[in-house]
Every structure is written in structure tokens, then in C-alpha cells.
């Protein structure tokens, strides 16, 4: 049995029973939660950029951002939601989320925002999907009423875009606030996690748009946006680390999991170096005129984003209030 080491003292469970699910650590949330947080942030970011491009009337200039990348969103959100439901203990009762609104619980209002954003993302894609793929004819699927839906969606697209701006920001930031609301897990319990997850989500979205970009001009623009976002993200991570080192004993101990423990290699090697610094340098080189296949930094950023979620979910559950 591994005892907790608490500054000169040690604690041992002697319940006389085998309680592997309580001792020594509770790790309840696993990969599906990390995947969901990643896909949620990614979807929020893509829809945000798409809505902005629509509102500034640059859809033809930024076709990848306006039209191609958002096609990913309904699929990403569906996979994310499935992962989330799969991780529930009682998945067939997940509709219970929608029998109440609890503003104190980020999970509750996150579930409500998802309920609005997911159908909006489908309507958003419907406004132009037949233009991109003329082979789609709804009467072939015996669903001619979809023309009517499409007509309405096109008519109100501007209002949809206006609604998506706040909704996607809330969705992106919620993926972080969901974790930061837990005072019992010191590694999550900080105010910077919401903005950090939002910026990381926007950065992965910019990387996806780079992959879908239809012109060199668009690719360059989103490379610039992505560089800015990566720099902000690195700044926020440094801010996070400094905040913990300036904190109390349990905050310092919580950070140790990332700085000097189980997840250190993953944190510095996979997230900081491969997920942030290398793509940042590659994108700067590309802007400076060097030939860099854009797919490399974009893929690295996407993997880095997923690694970041996995790290925070897993490492956060190892941190606890010391007593």
C-alpha cells in the first residue's frame, strides 16, 4: 500500500478491507473526457472563426475557414458527446441533464450550451453544403423538407453568426471552467484554466483551418493568427506555473506532478516542445519564406491540444487537498 507523504508524516488506510477504488487515488475520468474537452474546444474555435469570417463578409477570401473546416464540427461534437455519455455511470439517464438548469454547476450550463450549439452547427453547414457538394439532393433521401430548413437557415445566417460568437466563446471556455470548478483538485482549481483552454481550443481550430485552407493567402493569415494564439498560450502556461509556485503547499505539491513527477516528460516533451514550440518555430519559418509543409505544424498543434487535455485531466485527478 502506498502511503501519502505529507511533510514528515504519513497516512495509511487500515480499513481492514481492500478499497482499491478509494485508495490511494481516485481516477474516475479517463480518456473519453479528455477527448471530449479537446473536440469541444476545437469545434467552438472553428465555429467562432467561421462566424467571424461570415460577419466581416470575407467568405470568398477565407473559404477554408468559412465553409470547409466547419464541416468537421457536427462530427467532432457528435463524437465528443458520445465519448461524454460513454463515460457516464448511468448513460441512459443522461436526459436528466435537461430536466433542470443549475447555474452553479458548469457541467449543467455546458450541457445546455451544447444542446444549442450542436444543432446550430448542423444548420450552419446546411447553409452552403449543397454549394460545395452539388450531388447532394435531399429528395433522393426522401427528405425534401430539408430544402425548407436550408432556406430558413440561409435567411437567418447572420443572426446565427451573431449568436455563435458568444455561444462558441462560452463553449470553449467552459471546457476549462468545468475542471477549474473543483476545489478538491488543486491542479484544476485556478482561474486561468478557462482562458487557457479557450486559447488552446482556438489554436487547434486555426490549425484545422490551415489544413482546409483553399489559398496561400488564407493559409498565411491563419498561420499568423495561430502564431499569436500559441504565444498567448505559452504565456498563460508560464503564468499558471508561476501562480502555483507562488501558492501554498498543496498547490506546489499539485504542480509537482507536472514539473517533477509522473507527467513531466509528457508535459515538457510532448506538450511544450512538440505541441507548442516546434509548430511555433515552423510557422514563423514559413512566414519568413522558408518552404515548410504546413501540414506538419498543424498536425503537431492538434496532437498537442489533445495531449494537453489528457495531461490536465489525468494529472489533476492525482492532486488533492492535503490533510
Amino acid at each position: 500500500m502506498i502511503p501519502f507523504q505529507i511533510s514528515g508524516s504519513e497516512e495509511v488506510f487500515i480499513s481492514g478491507r481492500n478499497i482499491p477504488h478509494i485508495d490511494p487515488h481516485l481516477t474516475l475520468w479517463e480518456f473519453p473526457i479528455s477527448l471530449y474537452l479537446f473536440l469541444g474546444g476545437l469545434s467552438a474555435g472553428i465555429l467562432f472563426f467561421s462566424a467571424v469570417v461570415h460577419l466581416i463578409n470575407k467568405e470568398d477570401e477565407f473559404k477554408g475557414a468559412a465553409k470547409w473546416a466547419p464541416i468537421v464540427v457536427p462530427f467532432a461534437l457528435s463524437i465528443g458527446l458520445l465519448a461524454l455519455v460513454y463515460d457516464l455511470g448511468n448513460p441512459f439517464y443522461s436526459w436528466r441533464l435537461y430536466t433542470t438548469i443549475r447555474l452553479e454547476s458548469p457541467m449543467s450550463w455546458g450541457a445546455w450550451v451544447l444542446l444549442i450549439v450542436t444543432p446550430l452547427s448542423i444548420l450552419w453547414v446546411m447553409t452552403y453544403i449543397r454549394e460545395l457538394f452539388p450531388v447532394i439532393k435531399y429528395e433522393n433521401y426522401k427528405m425534401p423538407f430539408l430544402y425548407k430548413v436550408e432556406e430558413l437557415a440561409v435567411k437567418y445566417k447572420k443572426y446565427m453568426a451573431l449568436a455563435l460568437l458568444p455561444l462558441t466563446i462560452i463553449l470553449g471556455i467552459y471546457t476549462g471552467i468545468l475542471l477549474s470548478a473543483f476545489n478538491a483538485r488543486p491542479l484544476w482549481n485556478n482561474a486561468i484554466l478557462g482562458p487557457l483552454f479557450l486559447v488552446s481550443g482556438l489554436s487547434t481550430a486555426a490549425a484545422t483551418i490551415i489544413l482546409f485552407a483553399k489559398s496561400h493567402h488564407e493559409r498565411q493569415w491563419f498561420s499568423k493568427i495561430d502564431i499569436l494564439l500559441i504565444v498567448i498560450e505559452i504565456g498563460l502556461i508560464i503564468h499558471l506555473i508561476m501562480g502555483y509556485y507562488a501558492g501554498n503547499e498543496m498547490q506546489i505539491e499539485a504542480l509537482d506532478v507536472l514539473m517533477n513527477g509522473e507527467f513531466t516528460t509528457m508535459f515538457f516533451g510532448l506538450l511544450v516542445v512538440l505541441g507548442l514550440l516546434v509548430p511555433l518555430i515552423l510557422e514563423v519559418f514559413e512566414l519568413a519564406g522558408f518552404k515548410v509543409p504546413v501540414i506538419i505544424p498543424a498536425i503537431l498543434i492538434l496532437i498537442g491540444g489533445l495531449i494537453f487535455r489528457i495531461l490536465m485531466v489525468e494529472a489533476g485527478q492525482l492532486s488533492r487537498i492535503l490533510y
Binding site: L26, L28, G89, N90, P91, R96, F182, N183
Partner: peptide, 27 residues
Amino acid sequence: DLCIGCGACIESCPYDARYRHPEWGTV
């Protein structure tokens, strides 16, 4: 009857006093 087994309460408890019931799926 209301619990969906999401685990938010388990993560929020400083005393680790809750667990997900292996048969019910609820907390």
C-alpha cells in the same frame, strides 16, 4: 433516480468520500 453518474461530485469532494456504484452506475 436523478443521478447520471457523471462523477462531478466525486471530483469535487476533498474527502474522496464518494464512489460510483459498480452495478447501479450512480454515485
